[in-house]
Design a protein around this nucleic acid. Structure first.
Ligand SMILES: [Zn+2]
Ligand SMILES: [Zn+2]
Ligand SMILES: [Zn+2]
Ligand SMILES: [Zn+2]
Lengths: 131, 131
DNA sequence: TTACATAGTGTTATATTATAACAATTTAAA
DNA sequence: TTTAAATTGTTATAATATAACACTATGTAA
């Protein structure tokens, strides 16, 4: 769905870094990690992040101000996202549940309004931290 | 549920301000508005906000870095919240849907894990902006 | 009441996250 | 090819949030 975009140099560098990261990355951590590749200023990072979010290659974890690569092939609508976040180790996992996305996409508020875009963040303990 | 807490002076001042506001308020806007009441530093605001969030009197709209008073009497679990956000006028409404909260509270991820805390933000157009 | 623990306050300084403004360059159409 | 749109590089600054420390109020229990 969002694979057709040709990324620019900065976008590719930043996407690769986030994609390889086992955890969500913060903007200034990204900046630090790409300085050796010639990206020197916060704005260069934020502009790439904005674009990557827009085309759905990455998502922003709003409660953490951090960015994670999309690993959800069923993530058709770039801005309909769901995550689980461990409150101890901060592990973040993108949830790909057809049932959940269907429920949320079909949810109607009091006025009968539907919303195709949403962001859902579940908080709890991951498998490892539960034991 | 969360009405029993006795607020301290700073907490009460800040809660009253947010509660009267027709829209979510940002921390430094709150600061500006309470300076005449003797609250002079960001930390005084953030500490009150933290406490008010913790006891469920207000919620943080994560995608907007703003705070709104809880007007959802069925908001039993302080940290299980849902909002609709208008992408044009930025109107924010707390959603109180028994069906939705039940669905989310009972949602199980791939590992069968349930989450009692969550934050859901729907994005779309409000009634006024739709016309 | 007195001691103690807990929570809240006031203050200064600083850290972290994000955008404004402007000039230059690249890219992709028309 | 020329023109518009997107991207880049750069400096400066705005907006959001926390660290550290000394002090004060409040509640609980001996
Ligand atoms: Zn995704
Ligand atoms: Zn964990
Ligand atoms: Zn509420
Ligand atoms: Zn609106």
């Amino acid at each position: 769905m969002h694979k057709e975009h040709t990324l620019t140099k900065n976008q590719q560098i930043i996407f690769d870094l986030i994609d390889k990261s086992p955890e969500p990355m913060k903007a200034y951590s990204i900046l630090f990690n790409v300085q050796k590749k010639g990206i020197k200023a916060p704005l260069q990072v934020y502009r790439a992040l904005d674009k990557l979010v827009e085309i759905g290659k990455i998502h922003k974890i709003e409660s953490r101000n951090a960015f994670i690569a999309c690993h959800n092939s069923s993530c058709q609508v770039a801005k309909a996202t769901a995550f689980s976040i461990c409150e101890i180790c901060e592990k973040v996992t993108e949830i790909s549940s057809a049932g959940l996305s269907k429920y949320l996409a079909n949810f109607k508020d009091k006025d009968g309004m539907k919303y195709s875009k949403y962001n859902l963040e579940f908080f709890g303990l991951c498998k490892k931290c539960r034991t």
